[in-house]
Design a protein around this nucleic acid. Sequence first.
DNA 1: AGGATCGTCTGTGTAGCACCAACCATTTAT
DNA 2: ATAAATGGTTGGTGCTACACAGACGATCCT
Lengths: 162, 162
Amino acid sequence: MSAQPLVPSEHRSGALLDHLARRMRLRSESVLAPLGLRPRHLVALTVLRDGDGISQQALASTLEMDSTNIVGLLNDLEAKQLIERRRSPEDRRRHVVELTEDGAKRLNEAECALAGAENEVLGALEPADRERLYLLLRQAATGTTVICSTAIHEDETSSDTC
Amino acid sequence: MSAQPLVPSEHRSGALLDHLARRMRLRSESVLAPLGLRPRHLVALTVLRDGDGISQQALASTLEMDSTNIVGLLNDLEAKQLIERRRSPEDRRRHVVELTEDGAKRLNEAECALAGAENEVLGALEPADRERLYLLLRQAATGTTVICSTAIHEDETSSDTC
DNA sequence: AGGATCGTCTGTGTAGCACCAACCATTTAT
DNA sequence: ATAAATGGTTGGTGCTACACAGACGATCCT
């Protein structure tokens, strides 16, 4: 076995993403349980926070989930009053999904609660790198560059008992 | 531990990680199918490439999977001759798992094949940012800092593959 | 009026995975 | 030497997430 990597590996993030997401999800489950949330609820809420007031169809496509399964997901969230469905004025077939205040608050609480989990999973990264990672992930997820000032502004409003 | 960050940034990456991993996995499945692989196989192979010659138990703990399920996973991989199980000389109960040459090759092929999927999911990031993301993810996953010179070296030579 | 679309409900099937129990080979402790 | 612990394997059970399909009401667009 000659140790001669003449063909070095491609730098694909897929598997790493998968791996880290799994590790994070495993921890998240137990942390989120007391809040009555599951990891996928959090994903939905996060998406809703970024693009508020979107149709269920749009949500389904962002989440890349079957729309029939979105229904159940939103039912959960609505039962807990974390989101609201209201009919669109333009097209009354459509439901516009919005984060309620409770929803935003709960999301924030959840994120705070996840600090420990993130520490475990992202322990090898120093705070600055974690923030860098966050910004990259967010940009990839939303397709928009996050301007620093915006991020700082968001910081103020969300300063809870973290 | 009561260390409170001066800037209470609840920039939690968990949900984003989850979301992007899912999007990537959905695309990966179809791309990987012709190669006889599934996303989780790729995760295992990736881990194996980094820490070669580890016991199944160690693998189970890195992957954070139940060791009974690792068996099946490795059976798949071994049947395709992408990995080898050989008994450890020090402790003959142990199986040392190693990537075969075929395995390394296949992993590389798979990563090349995933270029398209990654383009779709990480489209909002320019190449330099993708590399940055990769390095951060890798550091988080392996716990080791990837030295830049190494990364750059790998970069040059890897362009001939894809 | 007729057809398409959005959301809802119900049901079916499959995959990933945790968990349990039993078992063999081997190592370590008594 | 015997007992106990450990690494791996096999088989089974059950849960959850999810895709997919069919049917329905409401609404929009011709």
